[in-house]
Design a binder for these strands. Structure first.
Length: 307
DNA sequence: CATTCGTGGGG
DNA sequence: TCCCCAAGAAT
């Protein structure tokens, strides 16, 4: 670490111009928090970590059943680490973005090898695990270990954008200003900070939603900068939409679905049947192999990876 | 910093 | 029907 690596001190707002948000949001959370399995006391850090992987871009309702199956089958990181990675991909089912299954398996292996089988409680060590980025590291450290971290997910970003900044939506990519704001709003006490992280996230998930927000149920509606400004519509570049039909992603999904259902190696012909355009089909299959999601065998056979 | 990476439900 | 979006990470 050299002097040039030390970031300039972030300007700290002299006084919060947005008033006190913690009290109302924490009280609301007390009353309205969902009883989700990964929030139960017995979930443990591994349960929290599994849930965070699955919830990366997948709604709670679809995660719930798969989460229960995973924790029943692999109650500890070492249990998953002992399995073939392909089993993780198979058990991932249709949650989407199956590379997450591979990374979760990789994280379990790393935890078994480097951390004695226990999910690390250190943010930097969490961040070093495959599939763990800034959000997930902060979430596990906060939710599982009660530490003080800014947990900045899409829900929290939207809540802050509206209630504090006064705009309908946060920027497309997370900005330094958002991180600075999240840190400034973080309660000083670790246990309160952890509850604040969960509460602000829950508010975004249940009330301050992307569409059809329910300000009538919001505990901070009277202080919300966006609402007080008359809820001006989002201006600026359109929020990046994700096309899907006809993309490689769709082809990869169809190919992998065949392999997930198969108990034995699948012949090339069975994969060829899912997409008629041969160039794109080949590119998609190559991509799956390159990602380690598919293992090619001799004789034009394919299967989920054994190692 | 922009792209890529699945899947399904709701408005 | 079509479009939007859902507790992001890696490159």
């Amino acid at each position: 670490m050299t002097a040039t690596d030390i970031p300039a001190p972030a300007p700290v707002p002299a006084a919060p111009a947005h008033g006190e948000l913690h009290g109302p949001v924490l009280a609301w959370f007390e009353q309205h928090a969902r009883d989700l399995p990964w929030r139960r006391p017995d979930a443990g850090a591994w349960g929290v970590m599994v849930s965070e992987f699955m919830l990366q871009q997948t709604p709670v309702s679809r995660v719930l059943p798969v989460y229960e199956q995973w924790l029943a089958r692999w109650p500890r990181p070492a249990d998953l680490a002992a399995e073939a990675p392909g089993e993780a991909v198979r058990a991932w089912g249709r949650l989407g973005y199956p590379r997450r299954a591979l990374r979760l398996h990789g994280a379990a292996v790393a935890i078994a090898e480097r951390h004695g089988g226990d999910v690390p409680d250190d943010h930097a060590q969490l961040l070093a695990l495959p599939g763990v980025g800034e959000y997930t590291a902060a979430a596990v450290a906060s939710f599982a270990y009660g530490q003080r971290h800014a947990v900045l997910d899409t829900n929290v970003r939207r809540v802050f954008a509206r209630s504090v900044t006064g705009v309908q939506y946060p920027p497309n990519a997370t900005t330094a200003a958002e991180r600075r704001l999240a840190r400034a709003l973080l309660p000083g006490d670790a246990s309160t900070a952890a509850r604040w992280a969960a509460a602000s996230m829950e508010l975004g998930a249940l009330v301050c939603t992307a569409r059809n927000e329910e300000c009538g149920r919001c505990p901070i509606a009277s202080r919300c900068a966006w609402r007080l400004a008359g809820k001006p519509a989002h201006d600026g570049p359109p929020r990046r939409g994700q096309t899907y039909a006809g993309t490689d992603r769709q082809v990869r999904g169809k190919l992998l679905a065949v392999l997930r259902e198969a108990v034995a190696p699948v012949p090339q012909a069975a994969l060829d049947a899912v997409w008629d355009e041969p160039v794109q089909r080949a590119r998609a299959l190559d991509g799956l192999v390159a990602d380690g999601l598919v293992e090619p065998l001799d004789g034009g056979l394919y299967r989920l990876p054994l190692a």
